[in-house]
Design a protein around this nucleic acid. Structure first.
Lengths: 197, 197
DNA sequence: GTCTATACGGGGATAGAC
DNA sequence: GTCTATCCCCGTATAGAC
């Protein structure tokens, strides 16, 4: 591992920690640089701009969550479980949840650097969920697998906004589990992995 | 109408237009001032700071939509219809949808000027929807009225993100109507006001 | 009351020395 | 690869012209 790679890693670790604690806007390049042990100009030698660092932080998180949903070997029932698990896990990292929520909406602007990234991300997620739901919902009344996929993704995103605004107002996990149950994606037996998390 | 009032109006019109196009953070006081035909210091004569302008823009839009949901004389069934109507209407004003979506997520930050505004907005909406659903869902299986309220609001918000990213990927109205139907808020008869919109 | 001119501290980004 | 110095823009504040 070269010196540059080590420095880049230090920078991203610092950015990740500071972003998660205080959000993207409240943290300056000078803050990150100081935390990583160099000047803000030094940081910008390794990343073209602040936003590129943010995207790097987020994509590193995707490397953790993506296999739970997009992996080749997750069967439909397990995929639904994993979505609940991700929702649970999100409850522990409000900083990162806020970052993702902010970026996905900002990226709504076609000129935004992350526009294509999020377009592709949602398209792939919808496709993957549609496939899984087609199996689980075969011949059930209610929405088509494609619509159910849109709905579940939208629900998860929208719940985050309400939860970030007022954490006590919403139980994200309960709302997601409840939705999978009315759709018929989950049996009424057990709400997921465990009830305590 | 005094000269001051006309200027204030011009400023808010400009701010509304620019915020809708680019979001709150990306638009500067100098941008707004130039669009309204004065200097940024002139703008700050009419509004104490940028935050006050934002809140003024938000409250002006609420004057249109709020009666459809929060009005004292909307009965439960009509309220559900109105939510579908708002969803339909949103399809025609992507700029305003983007503004609200961006702001509601930005405002997740406790330091954000509109934080309290959006906290209160969601709280009231949840309360109002919970009351209405309590009537419509009496003794039905599925989520409690409170959870159903959280879910429907979350669904509407999340659909907007997907729709703004890729308008052809999602039919917001269809997804909302479908959801009200599985909940049992709407009978299977008619999907709402009309099917063509 | 309405507005311009100007200044301050802090932000992201760039140029060029070392 | 990292620094210092610099640039321009931001929100905000004040002084003063009309």
């Amino acid at each position: 591992m070269t010196k540059g790679e080590r420095t880049r890693r230090r920078i991203i670790d610092s950015a990740s920690e500071l972003f998660a604690k205080s959000g993207y806007l409240a943290v300056s390049l000078r803050d990150i640089a100081a935390h990583a042990g160099l000047t803000h100009a030094g940081v910008l030698h390794h990343f073209p701009n602040k936003e590129a660092m943010l995207l790097r932080v987020l994509s590193r998180r995707d490397e953790v969550n993506a296999p739970l949903v997009l992996g080749p070997d997750v069967d439909p029932r397990k995929l639904v479980d994993n979505l609940v698990t991700i929702t649970e896990r999100n409850t522990g990292t409000p900083g990162l949840v806020a970052l993702y929520a902010k970026l996905s909406v900002e990226a709504t602007d076609p000129e935004h650097p992350a526009h294509a990234y999020f377009q592709g991300r949602y398209r792939i997620l919808r496709e993957r969920l549609t496939e899984a739901f087609a199996v689980l919902l075969a011949d059930r009344p209610g929405p088509s697998p494609a619509v159910a996929a849109q709905q579940l993704l939208a629900l998860m995103d929208g719940l985050q906004t309400q939860w970030l605004l007022d954490p006590d107002s919403v139980d994200m996990r309960a709302a997601v589990v409840s939705f999978t149950r009315i759709l018929g994606l989950t049996g009424p037996e057990c709400p997921g992995p465990t009830d305590q998390s």
